[in-house]
Design a protein around this nucleic acid. Structure first.
Ligand SMILES: [Zn+2]
Ligand SMILES: [Zn+2]
Length: 733
DNA sequence: AGCACGCCGACT
DNA sequence: GTCGGCGTGCTC
């Protein structure tokens, strides 16, 4: 079909087509399309197999390696101007190369939902309503017979209104429709506030001032700062003032947060400070909202973009500053599809686009601290808490041989009581949700197992069921042991529900909040909890890690870690780093403001080096020791690591495939470990295995991984088997 | 991943 | 007879 005319006479372009295939696809530019209109970063519609798809132009191709008879022509050019500027194309190309992910799946991450579908980019303004000429001609007291319509008319007579503002004013869409039907009003676009102003800053401490100045001095070029600031030291104020400087130079600022739940309070703080367009981008928004925010960011209309990990890919017309808050947080690492670290992409982006990058954390990652040591990042430290509040005191409770109620020792319960008696609040951290971690037969040791995973089932009370926390499978609570028939079944390990029940009985009448993924289902429950927390009355908060993320608890003076041992013997090489970060983050919730805080750790291993010293030493001292250990053991940040993972319908199939890949790799520049079954080999009915790759240098790792992927691609793929690679994996289990 | 083609079992 | 099961092969 394409071959009626000598194809070589037409120009050829390489395109990123949305497909998991790890290559670009070449297309001809037909006669009816001006080759000048086909620019890199433009979207085009192309035939692909038997269907038409949206693709992005990568570059011109002088000599295609594809059989000329197979080349097809582009169907249509979808954009007059490229949606991705050359720097952004370079970033997306880097992501594809670095993470060894198909280019056709990487490029669309820089597009909004409607752009991915091939639709025109969204217009920037907010959808709104304005009066027609006829509506403008009405007298001020018109529509008296219909008070709601009159109210809307009055609002519109003042000025055109965004639909969201009308909703807030209590005007239903029905009223809007009625005015439109009467030809008094029409839908329109309301442009955002064009001002880029910052309100007065809070007076900074000398440390904050130093940090702000250091960041300010590097604006306009690439520099990465690590803002190492203990909880309550005012990192956000540093962000605000650095951003104020950035937008004063009419460059845009991008602030990344590790999870959606942190955006509302950050946005509130930003709206208070800035009279400037702020765009929020995360997966909790509707497609339309994302489309509009995306357009505003790319057009340079948005002064500030606040978003979660995927927002690192949003095009910005004039990027000036990229901030990654809580940079140590695992939420920046995507765990499926393209396995990227938004923090690492942010740093690369800053480097390519000459932006200043700020990584902020109270517990910086080992990688970032190492980058400071190597002189790649500049360290900015905040060591004082606002208002001079003192750091919490920490103590371990040795619970060996103690009678526990709901996992709580008498000492813990007594300290909770004292805290409440002083009119203060207590926060208790339990590692698991549900009532108990497992169910075991007292007579034969049988443990209730998930049908689809190599994992035990957790006991839940509301409703009463056994539930797998890895796949969601659940069953009723058995009355008898499934192995010996005995009836003495006992729950093992404590979950949030159990501690909650004990606390409710011990402290009747005291406000008690449980925060885990079972109670924090909707947006409403989260909001309700956060407003409850601001209530100064004595209260107990109990929950999982969810409770530790970034939130402010001004009245909490006691933090209890109910089962500190849970993270103690994690075989992953990042286990200790995780534990340390968790302990310091949890402790950071205690004693803000003028009340000193205390932290209690319940443990059966009080002699464990981390438990014994954590929270007495500074985080940085403990982290330095972990870095030292990593160097001794030759683990990241020394050299580089990657994993090829496999999931399949049988374990042998996965291991066999990885073995075959390993056999065909004759590398000396890297070390291959495995293949080995994953820590939980069977999960949701799939068997997981992995091949770990370690190399002394990034370059050697990239080389090895490229070959590894090429080998795996060339191998026939057994049905039901999936493989993928994970560069800089956050866990190797 | 889609989406086709293709070749064998149980339904109108 | 054909509706449909998913094996395997291809996409510029
Ligand atoms: Zn038994
Ligand atoms: Zn399961």
């Amino acid at each position: 079909m394409a071959g009626h005319e000598p194809p070589a006479s037409r120009p050829i372009v390489a395109c990123a087509v949305q497909t998991p295939l790890r290559r670009a696809f070449d297309y001809l530019i037909p006669h009816n399309i001006d080759p000048g209109a086909v620019m890199p970063g433009n979207r085009v519609q192309v035939p692909f197999g038997r269907r038409q798809v949206v693709a992005l132009i990568l570059h011109r191709v002088d000599v295609s390696t594809v059989d000329p008879m197979k080349l097809k022509p582009i169907t249509a050019v979808l954009d007059e101007q490229p949606l991705l500027d050359p720097l952004h194309q370079q970033l997306m190309r880097w992501v594809s190369d670095y993470y060894l992910h198909p280019i056709g799946e990487v490029y669309p991450l820089a597009l909004s939902p409607c752009e991915r579908r091939g639709e025109p980019p969204a217009s920037m303004g907010e959808p709104g309503l304005k009066l027609t000429l006829r509506g403008q001609g009405l007298p001020e007291n018109a529509l008296k017979r219909s008070p709601r319509q009159a109210q809307l008319l009055a609002l519109l007579q003042a000025e055109a209104q965004p639909l969201s503002a009308l909703r807030d004013a209590g005007i239903s869409t029905g009223i809007v429709r009625q005015l439109i039907a009467k030809d008094l009003a029409v839908r329109c676009q309301i442009d955002g506030n064009p001002a880029w102003n910052a309100g007065p800053p809070l007076p900074p401490s000398s440390e904050q001032q130093e940090a702000i100045s250091a960041i300010r001095d590097t604006l306009g070029g690439y520099r990465c700062h690590l803002l190492d600031g203990i909880t309550g030291s005012g990192k956000t104020e540093v962000y605000l003032q650095a951003i104020a400087s950035c937008i004063a130079g009419s460059r845009q600022a991008l602030l990344l947060l590790p999870e959606i739940g942190l955006t509302p309070q950050m946005l509130a703080r930003f709206k208070e400070r800035f009279d400037a367009p702020i765009v929020v981008l995360h997966s909790g928004l509707s497609d339309g909202e994302r489309d509009r925010g995306w357009s505003a960011a790319r057009a340079g209309k948005a002064a500030i973009v606040i978003g979660t990990r995927s927002a690192v890919f949003v095009p910005l017309a004039r990027p000036g500053l990229i901030i990654v808050d809580e940079e140590h947080d695992a939420g920046y690492s995507q765990q499926d599809g393209l396995r990227y670290s938004a923090r690492d992409v942010a740093v690369k982006r800053g480097h390519l686009a000459d932006c200043t990058v700020v990584l902020g954390s109270a517990t910086p990652s080992i990688e970032s601290l190492d980058n400071v040591n190597r002189g790649r990042y500049q360290l900015l430290r905040l060591r004082q808490r606002a208002g001079g509040a003192s750091l919490p005191s920490a103590r371990a409770i040795d619970v060996r041989g103690l009678a526990l109620r709901g996992g709580l020792s008498t000492e813990m319960l007594d300290t909770v009581r004292q805290t409440l008696d002083r009119g203060e609040q207590a926060l208790l951290f339990v590692h698991r949700r549900g009532f108990a971690a497992g169910l075991q037969c007292h007579d034969c040791g049988w443990v209730a197992q998930c049908r689809h995973c190599d994992a035990g089932l957790a006991v839940h009370r509301h409703p009463i069921r056994l539930r797998c926390h890895h796949c969601g499978w659940n069953r009723d609570l058995p009355g008898h042991c499934q192995h010996c028939g005995g009836s003495r079944l006992a729950s093992t390990g404590v979950g949030t529900e159990q501690s909650e029940a004990v606390l409710a009985a011990q402290f009747p009448g005291t406000a008690l909040y449980r925060v885990d993924s079972d109670t924090m289902t909707g947006k409403g429950s989260r909001d309700a909890f956060h407003s409850a927390v601001r209530d100064p009355a004595p209260a107990i908060m109990i929950g999982t890690q969810m409770l530790t993320k970034g939130h402010h608890f001004p009245r909490v003076t006691l933090v209890g870690v109910v089962d500190a041992d849970n993270l103690l013997f994690n075989p992953d090489f990042r286990g200790e780093e995780r534990l340390l970060q968790l302990l310091y983050q949890v402790a950071g919730r205690a004693g803000r403001g003028d009340h000193p805080g205390q932290v209690l750790l319940q443990t059966r291993h009080p002699e464990h080096p981390i438990i014994a010293r954590a929270l007495r030493e500074e985080y940085g001292v403990m982290a330095a020791e972990i870095i030292e250990q990593r160097y001794q053991r030759g683990l990241p940040p020394v050299g580089a690591m990657a994993v090829m993972r496999c999931d399949s319908t049988s374990l042998d199939q996965g291991i066999g495939f990885l073995q075959q890949v390993k056999r065909e790799m004759n590398t000396t520049a890297s070390t291959l470990i495995g293949p080995l079954p994953a820590a939980m080999a069977r999960r949701a009915g799939r068997f997981r295995s992995q091949l770990i790759v370690m190399a002394d240098t990034r370059r050697a790792l990239a080389l090895a991984m490229n070959t590894l992927v090429a080998v795996a691609e060339a191998l026939p793929r057994p049905s039901g088997l999936n493989w993928f690679v994970d560069i800089d994996p956050i866990e190797t289990l």
